[in-house]
């Protein structure tokens, strides 16, 4: 496991994966969305608005999956002190927040013509909004810690504690009466007609590839930033030393 702790080794792999994931993700997502758009007939009740499912559900899954990844990386960081764990947790935060936001935005736009309202404070919508705020707090916290050069342990604890919200989002429609419908896809079972389900799964795959590519790109950016900063700091120190003792230089 610690074989990948070496950033140089990780970078070699990341360099290889970033572009194929980003480009492949864009292509698969575009193809899947076109497939879904062309092939999906109007829903029995929701009519054409059923098409929003193809962007709404992948965004929701990735928003929740993102925090799950943050929690796992945080656990790895706290227990094994793996140096890449903190970086990967930080790298997931921005794409996770973007997809949580897109889930809320597309859901709101979907709610208006179907439910008859942009927003309600039911269990599902509220807990999803909490997730977005958790992401924003996490991003602010990790940025502040990185700027001060302090340990990311507080962020890791925040990542773990915040994970309690993920099962709450997932179960909210089962535990509480809510305006949002219960889950359509459960273990090995789907209440979604195959004519929608197959393109939907392709969309999930496409967005997930893209998500993976963005995470790799973010990790490379964070690593490069840290390395550049460390090098500049060392140089500044050296210059200071040289100034303080001119005779030795």
């Amino acid at each position: 496991m610690h074989g990948y702790a070496n950033p140089a080794r990780f970078l070699k792999i990341a360099r290889w994966f970033t572009m194929p994931l980003l480009v492949g993700g864009l292509i698969v997502t575009a193809a899947a969305l076109i497939w879904g758009w062309m092939s999906s007939p109007p829903d029995r009740l929701m009519g054409d608005s059923v098409k929003i499912l193809f962007v709404h559900l992948p965004a929701a899954w990735l928003g929740m999956g993102g925090w799950t990844a943050i929690a796992i990386a945080s656990l790895v960081e706290l227990v094994w002190r793996h140096p890449l764990a903190a970086i990967s947790a930080r790298a997931v935060a921005v794409p996770g927040a973007v997809f949580a936001f897109l889930c809320l935005a597309s859901g709101s736009i979907w709610g208006r013509p179907t439910w008859g309202t942009w927003w309600v404070w039911d269990g599902r919508l509220t807990s999803m909004l909490v997730l977005l705020f958790l992401y924003l707090g996490y991003i602010a916290l990790t940025n502040a810690l990185a700027r001060e050069g302090s340990s990311s342990r507080i962020a890791a604890i925040f990542g773990l504690v915040g994970a309690i919200n993920v099962p709450i989002i997932n179960r909210s429609v089962v535990w509480w009466n809510s305006l949002h419908q219960p889950p359509s896809i459960t273990m090995g079972n789907s209440a979604i007609d195959p004519v929608y389900l197959y393109p939907l799964l392709a969309c999930v795959l496409g967005f997930s590839l893209l998500f993976g590519g963005v995470v790799f790109a973010r990790m490379r950016a964070i690593l490069a930033d840290a390395q550049a900063e460390a090098r500049l700091r060392r140089k500044a120190q050296k210059a200071e030393l040289a100034q303080a003792t001119p005779g030795d230089a």
């Binding site: 007939p41 109007p42 829903d43 439910w115 008859g116 309202t117 209440a191």
Partner: peptide, 22 residues
């Protein structure tokens, strides 16, 4: 009034069929 949708997504042509039939 707010409308609540259920978890089923089904095209119009298949309306009236039970899920098992579909």
């Amino acid at each position: 009034l707010l409308a609540k949708h259920d978890e089923n997504y089904m095209p119009k042509e298949l309306e009236g069929m039970t899920r098992e039939q579909v």
